[in-house]
Structure formats: structure tokens, C-alpha cells
Design a protein around this nucleic acid. Structure first.
Length: 224
DNA sequence: GCATTAACCACAG
DNA sequence: CTGTGGTTAATGC
């Protein structure tokens, strides 16, 4: 087993742990590598561990009454499942790898113990949860009040700014999933993308996206 | 009414 | 898995 002490991808929170605490963590930390498409957490399953994504990329999604809803696409390093594991026992959502992803499953009991005994650790976790919630509020508003082009523009910019830090990138998901992420249909996604191409805002080659006119995309994203 | 927007269906690469 | 065309329903001048 990998030793947490020597882990080169320690979270900001875990950097506050002392040798003894890291040893405890080690006993309840199980590293696993997932392939693209593998389910890491399953909605409605009982779970006693949360997930620390060391590297890779995942989608967090729920099956709603009508359709699949993607809550977010996120890359490591990050914690996932803290709300649903610490706050509930049954997973409220699923997590699926969209590329090769290395994670550690961390037992909820040891995690609770660390929260209670190490304030600096706990503070970093709270900080993380806060940022997450704010980001979620932002997404609610965007998705509820913007119309199609605004939502798609926002998603494209999100990948460019927050995920890849590049104007050129490989879209990690299908058009269908992009629809599930932005609350539109795959048909609408593909129409809007060709529209963006015709208006010279982006270039598209299958999954490859190149943002040419970022200003205008931002305009559309903001105007809705 | 008429225009806009987007979902649903169908069908073709 | 994607792109496109037709149809339909909702919404807003």
C-alpha cells in the first residue's frame, strides 16, 4: 500500500497532518486506479468512505426523475462525497471516471476524527466546501436563467479557464453529456456549436475545441 | 397573430 | 455518436 506520508499528491488539508495522524489515515486509506467509464461512487449505494481524487477527471451525476443530470465535471486533486458520506450514509449521487483516474477511498470514521482533532485540517476542508457551494449557486443561476447559447458558452469557457487552462482542448465528454451538463438536449448542443463555428467564435474538430473569439463567447455567456 | 426558442422524433453518415 | 431537418409547444411581443 502507498504510504500517505510519502504521497506526493497530498491535499492542502492533509498537509496539516502530523506523522501520527498520517499513520492513522494510512490504515483507512485505499488507493485505487479507475479506467475511463468506471463508476467510482454509485448513487443509492451504502457507503462508509469518501473519495480523494489524486489525479484524473470525473463526472458527478445523478439520475433525476426524467433524465440523467450531470452536476459537474471536475479534475483532481479534490475531495468528493464529503457531503453525502459525512452527512448521509446513502450516496446521493454517482461519480464516474471520464479518463484514467487515481483515487483514495478514505474511511469516514478516520475522516471525522481528523476533523475533530485537527483544526487546520478541518479549516481547509470547510474552505473547500464553501467554495464548492458558492460555485454551485453560480451554476444554478446560470443554468436556470440563461438560454441555450449562454449555457453552452459558459460550459466551453469553464473547460478552458478552470479545467484545462488553455484555449485549445479536447472536450472530455460527448455532446450528449454536454447536454446533460447544461440542461439542454444533444441536438441543441450540436446546433449551437455549429452556430458558434459559423460565427467564428470557435473551431471544432470532433472533440477538439479551439476558442478563437473569447471576448464574444464571454459576451454570450454573460448576456444569457 | 407572428417570431423566437428549444425539445422531440427521425434518419443519415 | 453526431448533425440536420421537420414538427410542435411554450412564451413574449
Amino acid at each position: 500500500m502507498e504510504l500517505c506520508n510519502y504521497c506526493n499528491q497530498k491535499s492542502k488539508a492533509a498537509q496539516n497532518l502530523n506523522a501520527l495522524e498520517l499513520e492513522k489515515l494510512e490504515l483507512n486509506c485505499n488507493p485505487v486506479t479507475f479506467r475511463k467509464g468506471d463508476r467510482i461512487m454509485i448513487q443509492n449505494a451504502l457507503s462508509f468512505s469518501l473519495v480523494y481524487v489524486k489525479s484524473g477527471m470525473v463526472k458527478v451525476h445523478v439520475m433525476g426523475p426524467e433524465r440523467e443530470q450531470i452536476l459537474k465535471i471536475t479534475k483532481g486533486p479534490c475531495y468528493l462525497g464529503i457531503p453525502t458520506t459525512v452527512g448521509a450514509k446513502i450516496n446521493q449521487y454517482s461519480v464516474t471516471a471520464i479518463m484514467e483516474t487515481q483515487v483514495c477511498f478514505i474511511g469516514v470514521d478516520i475522516f471525522r476524527e481528523l476533523l475533530m482533532t485537527n483544526g487546520n485540517f478541518a479549516y481547509q476542508i470547510v474552505l473547500d466546501l464553501c467554495r464548492n457551494e458558492l460555485q454551485n449557486f453560480q451554476k444554478y443561476i446560470n443554468q436556470l436563467q440563461k438560454q441555450g447559447p449562454g449555457k453552452i458558452a459558459e460550459a466551453l469557457l469553464h473547460f478552458s479557464d478552470k479545467v484545462f487552462n488553455d484555449l485549445n482542448y479536447e472536450l472530455p465528454i460527448t455532446r450528449n453529456e454536454l447536454g446533460d451538463l447544461t440542461c439542454t438536449s444533444r441536438e441543441t448542443v450540436s446546433r449551437i456549436l455549429t452556430d458558434f463555428v459559423q460565427n467564428k467564435m470557435i473551431e471544432v474538430d470532433n472533440r477538439h475545441i479551439k476558442i478563437i473569439n473569447k471576448k464574444q463567447l464571454e459576451m454570450i455567456s454573460q448576456m444569457g
